Simulated scan of single mutants.
Amino acid sequence: MKLAILSRNASLYSTRRLVEAARARGHSVRVLDPLRCYMRIAPDGFSMRYKGKPVHGYDVVIPRIGTSITRYATAVLRQFELMGSYTPNPSDAILRARDKLRAHQLLAAQGIGLPSTAFGDNPDDTDDLLSLLGPPPHVIKLNEGTQGAGVMLTEKVSASRAVVETLRGLYASFVVQEFVAEAGGADLRCFVVGDRVVAAMRRQAAEGEFRSNLHRGGEASPAEASAEEQAVAVRSARALGLGVAGVDLIRSQRGPLVLEVNSTPGLEGVEGACRVDVAGAIIDFVSKKISI
Score class of each variant (00 low, 15 high):
residue 80 F to H: 05
residue 74 T to P: 01
residue 170 L to D: 06
residue 291 S to H: 11
residue 291 S to G: 07
residue 52 G to H: 13
residue 142 L to G: 07
residue 26 G to K: 14
residue 232 V to M: 05
residue 147 Q to K: 12
residue 69 I to P: 11
residue 142 L to D: 01
residue 202 R to M: 03
residue 53 K to G: 06
residue 103 A to R: 06
residue 76 V to A: 13
residue 69 I to S: 13
residue 173 S to E: 11
residue 292 I to T: 09
residue 185 G to I: 04
residue 235 R to N: 05
residue 274 C to T: 15
residue 35 L to V: 14
residue 69 I to F: 10
residue 36 R to L: 12
residue 266 G to A: 12
residue 289 K to L: 11
residue 172 A to G: 12
residue 228 E to I: 11
residue 9 N to C: 13
residue 162 A to D: 06
residue 215 H to C: 08
residue 12 L to S: 12
residue 179 F to V: 08
residue 124 D to V: 11
residue 31 V to D: 02
residue 3 L to D: 02
residue 133 L to G: 01
residue 112 I to V: 02
residue 242 L to I: 14
residue 169 G to C: 09
residue 247 V to P: 01
residue 73 A to G: 13
residue 221 S to N: 00
residue 18 L to I: 03
residue 42 A to M: 10
residue 86 Y to H: 10
residue 73 A to N: 14
residue 241 G to L: 06
residue 268 E to D: 10
residue 245 A to D: 00
residue 207 E to Y: 10
residue 208 G to C: 10
residue 42 A to G: 14
residue 109 A to W: 03
residue 125 D to Y: 01
residue 250 I to R: 03
residue 143 N to D: 05
residue 50 Y to V: 06
residue 150 G to P: 05
residue 113 G to S: 15
residue 263 S to R: 13
residue 138 H to L: 04
residue 178 E to Y: 05
residue 158 S to P: 04
residue 35 L to W: 08
residue 163 V to S: 03
residue 225 A to R: 09
residue 274 C to H: 07
residue 147 Q to G: 08
residue 44 D to N: 13
residue 239 A to I: 04
residue 217 G to F: 02
residue 191 F to S: 03
residue 110 Q to V: 12
residue 55 V to W: 03
residue 183 A to M: 09
residue 232 V to I: 13
residue 122 N to Y: 03
residue 279 A to D: 08
residue 239 A to M: 10
residue 94 I to D: 00
residue 32 L to I: 12
residue 139 V to E: 11
residue 193 V to L: 04
residue 43 P to K: 05
residue 157 V to Y: 08
residue 164 V to G: 00
residue 242 L to D: 12
residue 51 K to G: 05
residue 51 K to N: 06
residue 259 L to W: 04
residue 272 G to H: 02
residue 87 T to W: 10
residue 18 L to N: 00
residue 249 L to V: 10
residue 182 E to F: 01
residue 12 L to V: 10
residue 86 Y to F: 15
residue 48 M to F: 02
residue 98 R to Y: 12
residue 188 L to A: 07
residue 18 L to A: 01
residue 62 I to A: 09
residue 157 V to A: 14
residue 78 R to E: 14
residue 159 A to V: 04
residue 123 P to N: 05
residue 257 L to C: 14
residue 41 I to H: 11
residue 130 L to G: 00
residue 31 V to C: 02
residue 291 S to D: 12
residue 253 Q to N: 13
residue 2 K to P: 15
residue 76 V to R: 01
residue 260 E to M: 15
residue 105 Q to Y: 11
residue 207 E to I: 10
residue 255 G to D: 08
residue 284 D to I: 07
residue 118 A to N: 00
residue 55 V to S: 04
residue 213 N to K: 10
residue 101 L to Y: 15
residue 47 S to L: 09
residue 238 R to A: 15
residue 279 A to N: 05
residue 283 I to W: 01
residue 282 I to K: 06
residue 141 K to E: 04
residue 267 L to K: 02
residue 222 P to K: 02
residue 77 L to N: 08
residue 90 P to K: 01
residue 35 L to G: 04
residue 61 V to L: 09
residue 49 R to Y: 14
residue 82 L to R: 12
